[in-house]
Amino acid sequence: MTSLPEAFRAAARGAGATASDADLDSAANYLVGRWTEPQRHYHDVTHLAAVLEVVDRFAHLAPNPDRVRLAAWLHDAVYDPRALGDANERDSAEFAEGLLTSLGAPAEVAAEVARLVSLTAGHATGENDPDGELLCDADLSILAADTDRYIRYTSAIRREYAHVPDDAFRGGRSRVLTELLNLPSIYRHAEIRGQWEDRARTNLKAELEELA
């Protein structure tokens, strides 16, 4: 089984990074450290591994899967549950571009990975963006989990937002779920949508009813 540092090194090499293996491994281990910060209960290394697994599974849907893999590594590199708006995504995108540039990735690649990271703020992609669509679909894959795993996910999210009073949390979470349910489709790629869309909508509706 490939370790996380090995997976990062392979993706970075595939995307054109020229840094030494030692530097790539150091960057990977630093990122793993970020993903294991104490404020993370859902947005942790388990989430990272799950997103990478989905990207690998559906890599054939993306023209540049290694860029998507790097964006998966970096999309929550900065994560503060108390941050406002899309500050985490903006900061993660900026961090991604700087890190990849320091690892010798071509400027175009570093900028594109940063763009992909920024998409996770609202999971909205434009037309003809299969790389962005795969990243967003992978990031939202938890929504189609089985019932037990979905309940663990919602519990972990609540722990991340323990600083938010119950009423405020229920209101904010309900708005997020409603926005997702109002989308024409939660998942962008037809192959993924066919497998996960119905299950995700069932989970979201059940959670929304519970919050109400």
Rank of each mutant, 00 (worst) to 15 (best):
G171N: 07
T178H: 03
T147P: 04
L31I: 09
V45H: 00
L204W: 05
G104M: 07
I186C: 05
A93P: 01
W35S: 07
R159H: 03
D25A: 14
L84F: 05
P65S: 13
T120C: 07
T178S: 02
N182P: 00
T46I: 08
A121M: 11
A50K: 06
P130M: 06
H60Y: 07
L143T: 06
R201Y: 01
V109K: 07
D21R: 14
H75F: 12
D80L: 06
G194D: 08
P63D: 02
T154R: 15
T18M: 08
T202Q: 12
A96P: 10
L140I: 11
L52C: 02
G98K: 11
S92N: 08
T154D: 04
P65R: 03
V51E: 10
P38N: 10
A200Y: 00
F8H: 04
W196Q: 07
L204Q: 00
L100W: 03
L204A: 03
T125P: 06
A28L: 09
A162K: 05
L48P: 04
G14L: 03
G14W: 07
E108Y: 11
Y153H: 11
D80F: 02
A190D: 06
D56M: 01
Q195R: 14
R199A: 09
R34L: 15
D131L: 13
P106C: 12
L100Y: 07
A7N: 05
A10V: 09
A87T: 13
S141L: 03
F8S: 09
L100I: 09
E94F: 04
G126Y: 11
L116R: 13
A206N: 07
S118Q: 14
P130G: 01
A121S: 15
T2S: 14
G33S: 10
D166G: 01
Q195S: 01
H47P: 04
W73K: 06
A124P: 05
T147K: 14
L84P: 00
G194F: 02
R158T: 09
R34K: 15
R199N: 08
T101Q: 04
A145D: 09
E133A: 13
R188W: 05
S141C: 12
R90M: 08
